[in-house]
Design a protein around this nucleic acid. Structure first.
Length: 277
DNA sequence: ATTAATGTTCAGAA
DNA sequence: TTTCTGAACATTAA
């Protein structure tokens, strides 16, 4: 998402911020849209970045607009699919190919917040989010996973433990690392931790390169409203009942852990105790 | 027609 | 303290 909007947004001056149309139930936008508009109008976007799964637009007056898309939020440079689920439009000055960011969110679980520079650190910063999934070291994995007895799959989804892994990639990562999703996080041996650290990087880097996963019902789209391609690389996610293409020995299973689906291969990810690598 | 599922997070309870 | 549950919401498939 960040890569998709950055070239069209950095260096541009905000001239309008409009909230929901009247028929659209307002999502969580803080402060209210009118205040956001007054605080960022005529400010230039200095950087487009992210913290974990959140998109951060920083303005020349040091305010940060933080978008948290959650399940179905899309950050678009082109017009959204419909106006029913449009949550805000941010307009820029000048006449170029794209002149607005649209935030479109079908379920409306997403949030949008504007932070002062001093709030930023506490409110969304490192005290609340764990180390980024693309940066975290093997030593950090050992230290942080060693402090929880939850299932490893559940631990990977905890943004305070590590920031940036969601439900699809938790399953894909554990399959790649050949780790049973139900294993206690603090029971992973050194080889398993090593495999996990490598799998997190390789799965996420390829997924980012391929612009994410657009499943059958097709919720996720990139900034130009085009589908991603990582769904073609899925080895387990939404493939329950199919033969595992990695081992050709077992069927992909689906189970529920802390109210979320987990997919895994019972052969590739067989619980192997502390002895076997 | 219900029910359960869906790239998520958080408060409040166990 | 840590971990689990339900709710916020819209839409679709079983």
């Amino acid at each position: 998402m960040v890569r998709g909007i950055r070239p069209f947004v950095e260096g541009r001056r905000a001239i309008d911020f409009k909230g929901c149309p009247t028929h659209c139930r307002p999502i969580s936008i803080l402060p209210p849209c009118a205040d956001v508009f007054h605080k960022i109008q005529n400010q230039v976007v200095t950087t487009v970045g992210r913290m974990g799964k959140r998109i951060v637009l920083e303005f020349s007056n040091r305010l940060s607009l933080v978008i948290e898309p959650r399940m179905t939020g899309l950050v678009l440079m082109s017009h959204p699919p419909d106006t029913t689920h449009l949550r805000f439009e941010l307009k820029f000055s000048g006449r170029r190919q794209f002149n607005s960011i649209w935030f479109w969110d079908r379920r409306g679980l997403g949030t949008v917040r504007l932070f002062d520079p001093d709030q930023r650190e506490n409110a969304l910063g490192k005290t609340r989010l764990g180390p980024d999934a693309l940066e975290i070291t093997e030593a950090q994995w050992r230290e942080r996973l060693g402090r929880t007895r939850r299932a490893i799959k559940t631990a990977l989804l905890d943004q305070k433990l590590v920031a940036g892994i969601g439900n699809i990639y938790a399953s894909e990562i554990l399959h790649r690392a050949r780790i049973d999703p139900q294993r206690c996080a603090d029971s992973l041996n050194s080889n398993e931790l090593k495999r996990l650290a490598v799998a997190v990087r390789s799965v996420l880097e390829l997924a980012i390169e391929l612009e994410g996963s657009t499943l059958g019902d097709g919720t996720y789209r990139n900034a130009l409203n085009k589908p991603g391609q990582y769904q073609n690389e899925h080895r387990v996610y939404m493939r329950d009942g199919e033969q595992c293409t990695t081992c050709n020995r077992a069927t992909i299973l689906r189970m529920v852990q802390t109210q979320r689906s987990t997919f895994h291969c019972s052969y590739c990810q067989k619980w192997s105790g502390w002895l076997i690598e």
